[in-house]
Amino acid sequence: MSQLILDRLAATFTGGELEQIGSQHGNEWARVRRDAWRTVGSFLRDDPACDMKMPTDLTAVDRMTREPRFDVVLHLYSVTKKHRVRLYAGVPEDDCTLDSLVPVWPGLDWFEREAYDLYGVRFRGHPDLRRILMYPEFVGHPLRKDYPKEKRQPLIRRSGFPGKPE
């Protein structure tokens, strides 16, 4: 479907920015070197043949035992060309940062906040990187695989209830 995009990327980025490309079940994907994340993003948006004006999703995956530990996943769609592509960027645990794509697609603002909230990936250049789903008092990032499954961080609990020892 969108082999064209991978061809365009491969022709443009010859300095090793594309670590891996692939295609499965009609979906094309590319693994992007971390420091070229924003460059590749703005190229895909501005290149008239690609014209990826619509970011449909951005999230993260915790691979836990793999190195680098996290993948940030970006899904792009072109409304005019009607094609899609999926981009990955590996983010290691000890330097858990990635360039923000909000300067490229402002709509990714809350997506990146969500990925930061739940996985702890910090997006450099994000205008307002706060938690979006969990409360500010929350400690840690709950969708990381090493976050304890039963751990709760209650904001409030009832006390002094007669008949129920606290």
Partner: peptide, 9 residues
């Protein structure tokens, strides 16, 4: 949700 707790109270 835990976040709604204070509002509910």
């Amino acid at each position: 949700t835990e976040r709604q707790g204070p509002a509910l109270r």
